[in-house]
Simulated assay, not measured.
Amino acid sequence: MTHTLVQDEAAIRALFTSLVEGMRERSPARVVARYADDAVTFTLAPPLLNAGLDARDPEAVAGWMAGFDGPITIEHRDLSVAVSGDLAFVHGLRRLAAVPVGYPEGFSMWTRITVGLARRDGQWLITHEHQSVPFYMDGSFLAATDLEP
């Protein structure tokens, strides 16, 4: 089947929409369904690296989600999608907003994301994901979670 760049970009953007919906619905299975079997992720939460099953374990995602009350909101902004054949690269900004269990108020913070994807059996899957938060270089080394685009 021949794919156009427009179709590929639309399919990749739909994958990101599915992530947003999976988080809103608190559906770990929907969230991890977008990852390849051999995915490698560098998330905000420890450990430094997740690979294979650890990068797409619905039980781990469910455990992370259990740390929040109410909705978990994800928003993407300024996503840049580049496609070449069966490989794609996306980078942009992601906002995470939620209320941690036991806290009276929630938080909202913008992070940076870089995602590598591969088309496998006709479906785009995430093979690499890197999330990061800048930190202040003023000697405090505090995460710069107050930044906004």
Score class of each variant (00 low, 15 high):
residue 140 S to T: 03
residue 19 L to H: 13
residue 64 W to Y: 15
residue 69 D to N: 07
residue 77 R to W: 00
residue 46 P to T: 13
residue 89 F to P: 01
residue 39 A to T: 08
residue 38 D to F: 03
residue 54 D to F: 04
residue 80 S to I: 08
residue 117 L to E: 06
residue 127 T to H: 06
residue 16 F to P: 04
residue 4 T to K: 05
residue 94 R to I: 11
residue 117 L to D: 04
residue 67 G to T: 10
residue 86 D to V: 01
residue 107 F to V: 07
residue 26 R to P: 07
residue 83 V to I: 03
residue 59 E to G: 14
residue 70 G to T: 07
residue 12 I to R: 07
residue 72 I to R: 11
residue 46 P to W: 10
residue 19 L to A: 08
residue 50 N to M: 14
residue 102 G to N: 10
residue 49 L to S: 06
residue 138 D to A: 00
residue 47 P to K: 09
residue 12 I to Y: 07
residue 95 R to K: 03
residue 59 E to M: 09
residue 119 R to P: 02
residue 92 G to L: 04
residue 75 E to S: 06
residue 70 G to N: 09
residue 25 E to A: 15
residue 5 L to K: 08
residue 142 L to T: 03
residue 131 Q to G: 11
residue 119 R to F: 02
residue 94 R to F: 03
residue 26 R to T: 10
residue 9 E to V: 09
residue 126 I to A: 15
residue 123 Q to V: 10
residue 119 R to G: 01
residue 118 A to M: 11
residue 64 W to H: 14
residue 1 M to H: 11
residue 88 A to L: 09
residue 7 Q to M: 04
residue 38 D to C: 01
residue 128 H to C: 08
residue 47 P to I: 12
residue 3 H to A: 14
residue 108 S to V: 08
residue 18 S to P: 01
residue 47 P to L: 13
residue 80 S to C: 12
residue 46 P to N: 12
residue 104 P to C: 00
residue 116 G to N: 00
residue 140 S to K: 00
residue 129 E to K: 13
residue 93 L to P: 01
residue 143 A to P: 01
residue 90 V to R: 09
residue 63 G to T: 08
residue 36 A to K: 02
residue 138 D to R: 01
residue 36 A to C: 08
residue 132 S to K: 09
residue 115 V to R: 14
residue 149 P to S: 06
residue 57 D to W: 08
residue 103 Y to D: 15
residue 101 V to I: 11
residue 149 P to N: 06
residue 3 H to Y: 05
residue 20 V to F: 05
residue 100 P to L: 11
residue 142 L to V: 04
residue 110 W to M: 08
residue 54 D to W: 03
residue 36 A to F: 02
residue 147 L to Y: 00
residue 77 R to S: 15
residue 122 G to H: 02
residue 105 E to W: 00
residue 37 D to H: 13
residue 119 R to Q: 09
residue 140 S to F: 01
residue 55 A to G: 12
residue 89 F to H: 13
residue 108 S to M: 06
residue 6 V to G: 01
residue 91 H to S: 10
residue 34 R to G: 11
residue 39 A to S: 05
residue 53 L to N: 10
residue 83 V to T: 02
residue 134 P to C: 06
residue 137 M to H: 04
residue 133 V to N: 13
residue 79 L to K: 07
residue 119 R to E: 01
residue 3 H to F: 06
residue 81 V to M: 02
residue 21 E to F: 02
residue 88 A to D: 05
residue 48 L to N: 12
residue 40 V to T: 12
residue 95 R to L: 09
residue 97 A to N: 07
residue 113 I to T: 12
residue 9 E to Q: 12
residue 90 V to I: 09
residue 146 D to Y: 01
residue 110 W to D: 12
residue 96 L to S: 12
residue 79 L to T: 12
residue 30 R to F: 03
residue 65 M to S: 14
residue 132 S to T: 11
residue 72 I to G: 12
residue 7 Q to D: 14
residue 64 W to G: 13
residue 17 T to A: 15
residue 137 M to L: 14
residue 146 D to I: 00
residue 72 I to K: 10
residue 18 S to F: 02
residue 80 S to A: 14
residue 99 V to K: 12
residue 74 I to H: 06
residue 41 T to C: 13
residue 106 G to W: 04
residue 43 T to Y: 12
residue 32 V to T: 15
residue 71 P to T: 05
residue 26 R to W: 05
residue 118 A to I: 02
residue 94 R to D: 06
residue 129 E to F: 05
